[in-house]
């Protein structure tokens, strides 16, 4: 087990190194941020001053070395645009993103799991057909469009909810729904397929043969086992929602990490983009590592796999 954990941890570190190198290079391929810090009309000496001030006049290897060194010491750099430590900006926005992601996860659970369950239990019936349509819509409707539609209906026409920004639960409702909608659809599909697979298994047949009532078979033996992959997906989804709800946060003016990333990309704020991506990467890699270890703990066969 220890060997497995060490191996997986090494993979995670390599993944993070590759990620850091990739994001470092990608943001620099997009061009020189100094051109965005000074609009048309700026003078060459102004740009040179900006580059020198932010260390952009150094070679890429030197910049990368500095970047990695800073990360290892817990310093994600200073944002070009905000002139604040990236870590401070990130952790200032993190509670907002967590709040939104948790609400969206809750909504996606409330919609996706019962609908998936119902679809699986009533295969090819009206519920299943409805579930398929819901899943199709959820996966195909763009978040920004749904967000704007919600604003138009619930804010402008009905005047029930505020348009955006952070406030009380009413401010949270529409962005959570717009964000959770897609994930609800994916949960619905996964719950359905997982349930169908479980319901075809031998121990379910045995449970039925034992004469257990249908709802007990479904709830106790079927649903419980089908939930494992669903919860795994929900965990990964939550991390993605925290870090990458870019469009929803922009549409609803929600001050989260996704919007921070959007602003960073828009302004070519290298330290900000690098910092947010690396932190998101750390979160995702950490969650995956944790899941791997848990799986290995539960199922010893996994430990032996390379």
């Amino acid at each position: 087990m220890l060997q497995f954990i060490i191996r997986r941890t090494c993979y995670s570190i390599i993944t993070l190194l590759i990620l850091s190198l990739t994001i470092f290079a990608v943001v620099r391929f997009t061009g020189d941020p100094a051109t965005l810090m000074a609009e048309p009309g700026a003078r060459a000496e102004d740009l040179a001053r900006v580059r020198a001030q932010w260390g952009l006049d150094r070679s890429w290897p030197v910049q990368y070395y500095q970047f990695v060194q800073n990360i290892l010491s817990g310093n994600l750099g200073i944002s070009f645009n905000y002139r604040m430590p990236v870590s401070e900006l990130y952790f200032e926005r993190l509670p907002n993103s967590l709040q939104l992601a948790l609400a969206a996860t809750l909504l996606s659970f409330l919609i996706g799991i019962p609908a998936g369950l119902l679809s699986a239990v009533r295969v090819d019936g009206i519920w299943d057909q409805t579930g398929k349509v819901v899943a199709l819509l959820g996966l195909s409707i763009p978040g920004f469009w749904l967000g704007l539609l919600l604003i138009l209906v619930f804010s402008v026409y009905l005047e029930w909810l505020p348009t955006g920004g952070k406030g009380d639960w009413r401010n949270l409702l529409m962005p959570a729904l717009a964000l959770g909608w897609y994930f609800a659809a994916s949960l619905l599909r996964l719950t359905r397929s997982s349930m169908l697979e479980v319901m075809r298994s031998e121990y379910i047949k045995l449970a039925r043969l034992k004469g257990l009532p249908g709802y007990v078979v479904i709830a106790k033996h079927g649903f419980k086992n089908a939930l494992v992959p669903v919860l795994t997906l929900a965990g990964v989804n939550l991390v993605v929602m925290v870090n990458a709800a870019v469009i929803i946060e922009v549409v609803f003016a929600w001050p989260g990490i996704g919007r921070l990333l959007f602003e960073g990309i828009f302004q070519r704020d290298f330290p900000l983009v690098q910092g947010v991506v690396v932190l998101a990467g750390v979160m995702i890699v950490f969650v995956n590592l944790l899941i791997d270890i848990l799986y290995a703990y539960i199922d010893p066969r996994i430990r032996l796999m390379r």
Binding site: I151, L152, S155, V156, T163, G164, G165, A253, F262, E263
Partner: peptide, 18 residues
């Protein structure tokens, strides 16, 4: 002064009096 990057949202805010 509140930052609202999406134009349609800004207009909705104006229409609602926000």
């Amino acid at each position: 002064i509140v930052s609202v990057p999406e134009a349609a949202t800004r207009l909705a805010m104006l229409e609602r009096g926000e």
